[in-house]
Design a protein around this nucleic acid. Structure first.
Lengths: 184, 184
DNA sequence: GTCTATACGACGATAGAC
DNA sequence: GTCTATCGTCGTATAGAC
């Protein structure tokens, strides 16, 4: 395989930005071509399966990046500090709230993103749950705290995308450790 | 103008459901035709401006319905009770969390929904702000409380749409009065 | 007011030259 | 690996009969 003029990860990230912003149906090949700087045919060379394969690729990469952000949830240590690490990682992933959420974008519009989005939320919830349980919450408390924390972040991203106000997102990130541990 | 076989409001609501679910680009005329039971040409008879005009119509109607839900914010009375009324109205609007949010759907995908979504959030925030200020919050406190409350609801809707779990949404609705008043 | 038929354009995808 | 050119399809929108 000869060298590409654009790095694989860089390409995938550029494509992910377009899908995140415009959804599956709104992410036209022309737009993808413009954003990536590659011609239409080159995109098909990289992703013979077309848009469906692009979605698979960006979800795979998102899963890896999510995984890294969530990794501190799986190690031993004080719950509050682990939650802080996770919050930091998520904030990097969402680029301080300027990056609209792929899950949301793919849940709107058709494509095969519906089920993928659900599984992604599950993985996220499972990781945070570990922290909440370690902090001494009951399973019912932890379940609620975790989903509320995720909802706060997702909601903050939506507000940021529609109105440009990032305050709600920033507070959602900042209060994540408190939400997951009750301060413990 | 002769009688329609489908009521104007019913038609608009059906169209709104399609746009809410699939976004602007994903809401094809075929899908709209199927959902409304009207032929493609009939849709253009009702909305000569095509999809753009449909979006205008559903936003106008959403604004009216939002207005009704938010009306209790503008009357005199104890802040907590007013917030409860607003929460009840919003919950009806979102059909207990089963109705995905139009704002979110139009912010994804292109169309002219971007700015409309922002203005809609503004209107929502302005109404809730009145309650928070009446409850004795400072403007800074109120601004944060209001945006966080909206984010919680929007986030809850996103979680409900992607994973089917409505818990976060339900708690966001239930805790709205507390969030806006601090219990006052 | 709604339907069938159709024009026209945009988009997804492919072939072949470089 | 990337580009130009092109084909088929789907989707938007319109025309005209009922």
């Amino acid at each position: 395989m000869a060298r590409s003029t654009i790095d694989d990860d860089t390409l995938t990230d550029a494509i992910a930005r377009v899908f995140s912003r415009f959804g599956f149906a709104g992410a036209s090949i022309d737009r993808l071509s413009e954003e990536t700087g590659l011609g239409r045919a080159s995109l098909y060379h990289r992703y013979p399966g077309g848009k469906d394969e692009m979605v698979s690729a960006i979800i795979d990469r998102a899963t890896v990046r999510y995984g890294k952000a969530l990794a501190p949830a799986f190690v031993d240590g004080p719950p509050y500090a682990r939650a802080q690490e996770v919050a930091k990682g998520l904030n990097e992933y969402y680029n301080n709230g300027t990056q609209s959420c792929l899950i949301v974008a793919l849940s709107v519009s058709d494509g095969d993103g519906q089920s993928e989005g659900g599984r992604c939320v599950e993985a996220w919830a499972d990781a945070l749950m570990l922290i909440a349980l370690d902090a001494g919450m009951s399973s019912v408390e932890a379940d609620a705290a975790v989903l509320d924390a995720i909802a706060a972040i997702e909601g903050g991203l939506v507000i940021a995308a529609t109105s440009g106000k990032t305050g709600a997102y920033e507070r959602a990130i900042a209060t994540l450790p408190e939400r997951l541990t009750g301060g413990r």
